[in-house]
Structure formats: C-alpha cells, structure tokens
C-alpha cells in the first residue's frame, strides 16, 4: 500500500487520483501507525516550510516518516515534501527540516519572477529506477519560490534552470524528492508515479 501523508499542507486528491490512473492504489493517511503500516510513503505538500514541520510534529508524524526511510521503504517527497527532506530552510526565519539529506532550502535570487509557475526542463544527472522511461530534458510542472541546495553531489539526480541551475530531483537509495508536481505533469509525471509504485 502507498500512503500519502496528509498533514494539512495542500490538496492531496490530485496525487491520489494520479496514482489510481496508473493502476496503483494509494490512500491518504494522517496517523503515525498508518505510515508504519505502509509499503511506500509519499510526502506531498504546498505552503510554508515552518508550518509544515510544526504540523508534522504536532501529528507525531516525523518519527514514522524517518523510520520508513531508514528501513528502506520507498519514499517520495513532492514539492514542499522534497524541501522538507533537507536539513534546514531559510524561508521566513530558520527552520529545521527532516534532515534526511544534507543541504539547505533557499529563496530564488532577485531577477526572476517568483514563484516560478509553469513547465520547466529537467536534465537528468543520474539514472535511477524512478526515472525509467522518462527522457532526459522532459518538462514538468513547477510552482515554487524556494529551491534546495544539496551539499552532496551524489544526492543530485535532476537539475533545472531558472536563472540559476538548481536541484529539481534529489535523493539516494530509495528515498527521493521532486520539486515539481508529477501529478500535474502529464505523461512524464505519471510515468514517475508509476515507477515509484512498481520499480523503486
């Protein structure tokens, strides 16, 4: 079973419906025991980093999420979910993240329209099961004002250009995060969700 973690940060229905569309069953969960029981965990989310961490903490979801990852159960962070995988964020003050990947969440520098809204290209840096059948240079739908700066090169899986080159897919082993919305990125995004359900 795929568990989509609901912690009050945005609409999860589209993610669930996209999984259904590629033949995978995904349930929306909000209790620690549901995450412990899941084979695969998806952490979506839209909104502020600080609020997200405090919601996860209040709902006692941090420990089961970190446990799922350390046990090697496949994990996918989407948008804010990717950013939460990192150690800290400078979004409206300093906040601690889940600290699964070393690095920081930063705001786009001046000179670009923020948030970045729209379709942008991902240059694949490393072949992983999550990206099987997804051509290099595929476009995905992004909506974000902050990006992740990874400390380790080996965690960088995909890179995107928005005035600067930034990390749009990160992770290692079986825990990955994507800055874009695969559930709104047509076939390229659906392929990633299908791979996550079947191949990771």
């Amino acid at each position: 079973m795929i568990a989509i973690v609901n912690y009050g940060m945005g609409n999860l229905r589209s993610v669930q419906k996209a999984f259904e569309h590629v033949g995978a069953k995904a349930v929306i969960v909000d209790r620690p025991e549901d995450i412990d029981a899941a084979d695969r965990v998806v952490l979506p989310g839209v909104g502020a980093f600080g609020d997200a961490m405090s919601n996860l903490k209040t709902a006692r979801l941090i420990t089961p999420i970190v446990r799922a990852i350390s046990e090697g159960r496949p994990f996918l962070g989407i948008c804010l979910g990717l950013q939460l995988m990192f150690a800290e964020s400078e979004e409206m003050g300093q906040h601690r993240g889940l600290d699964i990947l070393p690095g920081k969440v930063k705001r786009f520098p001046e000179g670009q329209r923020v948030p970045q809204i729209g379709w942008n290209e991902v240059r694949i840096q490393r072949e992983i099961a999550l990206l099987e059948g997804v051509p290099d240079g595929s476009y995905f739908y992004f909506v974000h004002s902050f990006f992740v700066a990874s400390e380790r090169d080996e965690d960088v899986v995909g890179v995107t250009d928005y005035g600067i080159d930034y990390v749009s897919i990160a992770g290692n082993d079986r825990a990955f995060g994507v800055q874009f919305h695969p559930e709104k990125s047509q076939d390229a995004g659906l392929k990633i969700l299908k791979n996550f359900a079947e191949k990771v």
């Binding site: 059948g133 997804v134 595929s138 476009y139 390229a188 659906l190 392929k191 299908k194």
Partner: peptide, 9 residues
C-alpha cells in the same frame, strides 16, 4: 515552449 514527448505508460 514545452515540446510534446511520447512516453510509454
């Protein structure tokens, strides 16, 4: 613009 790509689903 976003080009159309064929992906096998």
């Amino acid at each position: 613009v976003r080009p159309k790509i064929e992906i096998d689903l």
